[in-house]
Design a protein around this nucleic acid. Sequence first.
DNA 1: ACCCTTGTCAACCGTTCGGTTGAGAAGGGT
DNA 2: ACCCTTCTCAACCGAACGGTTGACAAGGGT
Lengths: 120, 120
Amino acid sequence: MAADALSRVFSALADPTRRDMVARLAVGDATVNELAAPYDVSLQAVSKHLKVLEDAGLVSRSREAQRRPVHLEAQVFDLMTKWIERYRRQAEERYRRLDDVLSAMPDDVSPTPPQEGTTP
Amino acid sequence: MAADALSRVFSALADPTRRDMVARLAVGDATVNELAAPYDVSLQAVSKHLKVLEDAGLVSRSREAQRRPVHLEAQVFDLMTKWIERYRRQAEERYRRLDDVLSAMPDDVSPTPPQEGTTP
DNA sequence: ACCCTTGTCAACCGTTCGGTTGAGAAGGGT
DNA sequence: ACCCTTCTCAACCGAACGGTTGACAAGGGT
């Protein structure tokens, strides 16, 4: 298994079917059968997907007669968002500084090789 | 291979080593050797990791003599952020509405069955 | 009581993943 | 020219992944 929480979350959302289920659950809680309906896979496969989502903390399951309603736990998204934002911001800041440097350059130099096929 | 872009991005970031590399690249571009230094794996393994990041569009590689400087492409983060924000917002909205319903309830009903995961 | 619905557990199967080693392409430095 | 550095490609290996089928636990409905 993936050791840390962040890995489990990213890994869980790496599967399009699982992302789809999250999208469905954002609308409201659902049973396993309801979640399985749109997909052309066995119920057991869906059950496995839900286990992955649960282990990642993205989803929780309760009990209601034979049914096991699945509930989206949106807080976990924050974990990802924080991680992403951190490095995105950092990279953008770096880009901005580079821009400043470039705009301070004299005009006769061409510092940005457009792609790979550059120097004539 | 993961079909869609989003799957590739999530899957790429599901590995802690690769997330670490992204963190390193947010500080500034780096060569493969520089990126490999902190880890106790072969250079080939690092090269593979970089290929995964590149296929996900998270990273681009240019050429500079024998060196292949790796550059973080921060725009791709937006793809994830958009996806996450969408469903997080939706789920939070739903939660807010549920809260309204609950607070409008008479006091003698107990709508939360005392199971395991009651909010602290 | 009986059955029917709902869902999970367990075993298996093919593919992908993260790692290894070995070989070699690409490109200076001297 | 030769070598040394940097990096990638190819083949292989064990573990994990996503799927299947079969058995069965849990729990009403009648």
